[in-house]
Amino acid sequence: MIVSVVSMPEGVVARTGLAQARERLTATSGFVIVDIDLGVDPPPDEEPLSRRLGLDDAAGEWLGRADEHVRAEYHDGTAIGVVPVVRGNEVTHIHVLADQRRFITVHHGPVELIEAFIDQLPQDLPPDVVTTLFLFLQGVLQTFRRAVTQAHLEVEDLEEAMFERRQPEHVQRLAQLRRRAAHLHRAFLPYAAVAQEILVRRRMADHHLSEERQAMNRLHEHTVQLVLVEIEALRDAARRAATSYASLVADQQNVVINRLTIVSMIFLPLSFLTGFFGMNFAYLTNRLMSEDSFLEFGVGLQVGAVVVALYYVLYRTHWRQLRDSRTRDAADDRS
């Protein structure tokens, strides 16, 4: 377990134990920021973390439990909840508790957001816990925005690479990006709903909110909606890239089928003539015995069949389409 305590408004960061953090939380001067890293596999403890920290609020009984998902509660001036944070290629959850004098974060394993947030505190020096909470939540939203932007750029690069030269691994990477977009949407949507509910409820219940608090609420709501729009744009881009890949595959299959059609139209008459002259009819066996007869009926019919097939394939498909396209282009130029 790693415990970091930041004394505000000085912004002094110190590594302490859980007992020392409890003493700092009961101090009366200023406010205190405490971050607790329980580790990836924390040891089982029967006593809740909230009681070990000296927090008697009933809302903090589940603080630090690994099986908690996105939620938010507000009791007598104490806000407590679980927020999702993008950590590398996965989404983790951070427990947050905030009141007038304390701001506590609890997580399992190292989180880059927490490290950057604590390192930035001596420069930001937030004046109170509410401002600290909003700064932290804005950092949470930025992790999603960075992840969405990176995935969006990968989708665009992948789509461009597919049009240049399609590779089998493109479809696998595209499927991974589609799953990434769905995972981000599934992780962020509950937080967006909870944040909207809490902010609207607080704004309606407290009619004496300062202009600064109202501005922070509006900023957070706007950023939440912006992240949702960006995630939806990522999902649309991934679906569009998948449709483009399917179109490229379909075009290639059409080319193959067109070539097979040409070959079959050439060899089908030949196969028919070969089978026809291979039959033991009396006319074929008794009358067509000379070299001139063979050249006239055998070779001549086959050459004629090939010429007719080639004329039909080339003129009725390729040449005719080319002529029609030139006619349309000339009509467009005149108009």
Results as ranks from 00 to 15, higher is better:
Gln302Pro: 02
Val308Met: 15
His318Trp: 15
Asp324Met: 05
Gly300Thr: 09
Met289Arg: 15
Ala282Ile: 09
Tyr315Glu: 09
Gly300Cys: 07
Gln302Ser: 14
Gly304Tyr: 03
Gly304Gln: 02
Ser293Thr: 09
Arg320Asn: 10
Leu301Ile: 01
Asn286His: 13
Arg323Asp: 02
Thr317Phe: 07
Arg316Gly: 08
Glu296Ser: 13
Val303Trp: 00
Ser293Ile: 06
Ala305Ser: 11
Arg287Cys: 02
Glu296Arg: 14
His318Gly: 11
Leu295Trp: 12
Gly298Glu: 04
Asp324Glu: 06
His318Ser: 14
Asp292Thr: 15
Thr285Asn: 15
Ala305Val: 00
Phe294Asp: 05
Arg316Ser: 09
Ala309Ile: 01
Ala309Met: 02
Arg323Gln: 03
Thr317Cys: 10
Phe294Arg: 12
Glu296Val: 10
Gln302Trp: 03
Leu322Val: 08
Tyr311Met: 08
Val308Tyr: 06
Asp324His: 10
Glu291Ala: 14
Glu296Gln: 14
Gly300Gln: 08
Tyr283Cys: 10
Ala282Val: 11
Gln302Thr: 11
Trp319Cys: 07
Leu295Pro: 00
Trp319Gln: 11
Leu322Arg: 14
His318Cys: 08
Arg323Pro: 00
Tyr283Trp: 15
Tyr312Cys: 12
Thr285His: 13
Leu284Ile: 13
His318Met: 15
Asn286Met: 12
Asn286Glu: 13
Arg320Ile: 03
Asp292Gly: 13
Leu322Phe: 03
Leu284Ala: 09
Ser290Glu: 10
Ala282Met: 07
Val299Arg: 09
Leu284Val: 08
Gly300Leu: 10
Arg323His: 04
Tyr283Asp: 08
Thr285Gly: 13
Glu296Ile: 10
Tyr315Pro: 00
Val303Lys: 02
Leu301Asn: 00
Thr285Lys: 13
Arg320Gln: 11
Leu301Val: 03
Leu322Lys: 11
Glu291Ile: 06
Ser290Phe: 06
Thr285Glu: 12
Phe297Lys: 03
Thr317Ile: 13
Arg323Thr: 05
Val308Glu: 06
Tyr315Asn: 08
Tyr312Asn: 06
Ser290Cys: 10
Val308Gly: 07
Val313Gly: 00
Val308His: 04
Asp324Tyr: 06
Ala282Phe: 05
Asp324Ala: 10
Asp324Pro: 00
Gly300Ile: 04
Phe297Ser: 02
Val306Gln: 01
Leu295Thr: 03
Ala309Tyr: 00
Phe297Asn: 02
Val299Leu: 14
Leu288Tyr: 04
Asp324Ser: 06
Ala305Glu: 01
Gly298Arg: 01
Phe294Asn: 12
Val307Arg: 04
Leu310Val: 03
Ala309Asn: 00
Val306Glu: 03
Val306Ser: 03
Tyr312Glu: 06
Thr317Gln: 04
Glu291Gln: 14
Phe297Gln: 02
Asn286Thr: 12
Ser293Glu: 12
Glu296Met: 12
Ala305Ile: 01
Tyr315Lys: 10
Ala309Gln: 02
Glu296Tyr: 13
Val313Pro: 00
Gly300Met: 09
Asn286Ile: 09
Leu288Gly: 04
Leu322Tyr: 08
Val306Ile: 11
Val313Phe: 03
Val313Leu: 04
Gly300Asn: 05
Thr285Cys: 12
Tyr312Asp: 04
His318Arg: 15
Leu301Tyr: 00
Leu284Asn: 07
Asp292Pro: 01
